[in-house]
Nucleic acid binder design. Structure first.
Lengths: 229, 229
DNA sequence: GTCTATAGCGTGATAGAC
DNA sequence: GTCTATCACGCTATAGAC
């Protein structure tokens, strides 16, 4: 851990973060809550405590800003998933392995990255909203980076469920992603429906619920023949 | 020259639909694809083949338009769900009943209503996007109308799984809704991942996959003790 | 109820002094 | 790299003739 210096304790605009980083942090925070269209560059500049001109100086267009957000998170998250997936593959007990596979998919979407501020959850929220907003530019970026990772998970699940139909596994993986997104974005619904006994903001709980639910859903598939519908 | 006014004559498409209906249809279609912020009133008026002024004459603000969309769908859909849920409750075999309960939740979200154009799927897509966009006005409307229906489903599921923890049922119901939303909005991902062998636009298939997946997820809960985590 | 015109504002993006 | 000033445009909403 780096020693704290005066530079890191600056009263306002922190010197430990470059202007582009400040802008990206602000953009990520705002877009994770209101989407791409719902946020203006002016708001981003204001939250970042940076002048409007600096935003376009560093990023040019609003879409570039979005792409930059994506770029700084996609690779670390995918690496983390690959690592956890490889770890999971070494488990011999099939139902334990299945649970580990689902966790390998879910955990990196929640947990913070050491090198990137804000962590995985905020970025996942951005992706959730963008995928719903139908933003064209975003659709392409998301599709490219994500589908390949998805395919690896489908294959890993299939290895645990030799009798299962691949397409059915895809459907359930899709449901997993939808559940993940919705939980991160609309978690407060859980607070309401459980009358405050559980919170959607409790990431550890969310991870556990997601992984057990979908491990069960995949297990069910393992016991089903391809011919059945 | 005695001229009959042609102004109120609607020569083509509008013969059977009133101007407010045309506007609502257009607004629903556009917002179901790009959300609230992503669509302008001008676009809505243009698609509805109506003049800009007519939109604000009939609805006032953009938010009122959103509320009107919600109003014309919420009650029919909730009624349909109640009916199907009551039907499901009469099934004695527990695993069959569970499947029927999930279907009672899912089917009305996809199927078209006789009296409202566009059907349930488009409206569900609107709700999906709004819930993600974090639009304040929308959040309230959705929470009010939806949570009560959700609670009824949680209770119905609980009756099938006496040993299950209520909070866990809530979490899985939440996942069901997230899966439903994501499938309706990002269905084309399924086409890609199954290499065209299945389509997310195939509503019948989506209904079947959703109901079997979550019936399995709830069954799993039925076999778990409350004390287990 | 329909349609035109426009007020009033916020937006994304740029140019250029510093 | 930073900051100011501004352009050109699209937006929501309104006023008023028809």
């Amino acid at each position: 851990m780096a020693s704290l210096t005066k530079k890191n304790v600056r009263p306002y605009k922190s010197a430990s973060k470059s202007t582009p980083e400040l802008i990206l942090d602000a953009a990520e925070e705002l877009m994770s809550r209101r989407g791409f269209h719902g946020v203006s560059i002016r708001e981003i500049a204001s939250l970042a405590e940076v002048h409007l001109g600096s935003v376009t100086y560093h990023f040019g267009t609003k879409e570039n800003l979005l792409e930059a957000i994506y770029e700084r998170h996609a690779q670390p998250m995918n690496l983390r998933r690959s690592d956890l997936l490889a770890e999971a593959s070494r488990i011999t007990n099939l139902s334990e392995r299945l649970l580990a596979i689902v966790r390998a998919f879910v955990v990196p979407a929640f947990s913070s990255q050491s090198d990137v501020s804000g962590g995985g959850a905020r970025f996942t929220r951005v992706r959730a909203i963008l995928s719903m907003e139908g933003n064209e530019a975003a659709q392409k970026i998301i599709a490219n980076h994500f589908d390949e990772t998805s395919a690896a998970f489908v294959d890993a699940v299939l290895e645990c469920c030799p009798k299962a139909d691949r397409n059915s596994v895809v459907w359930r993986c899709h449901f997993l992603l939808g559940s993940l997104y919705y939980t991160l974005v609309s978690g407060e619904r859980i607070d309401r429906l459980t009358h405050g006994e559980t919170s959607g903001a409790d990431h550890q709980r969310a991870i556990d619920e997601l992984s057990h639910t979908f491990a069960a859903a995949f297990s069910d598939l393992a016991n089903t023949n391809k011919e059945q519908s």
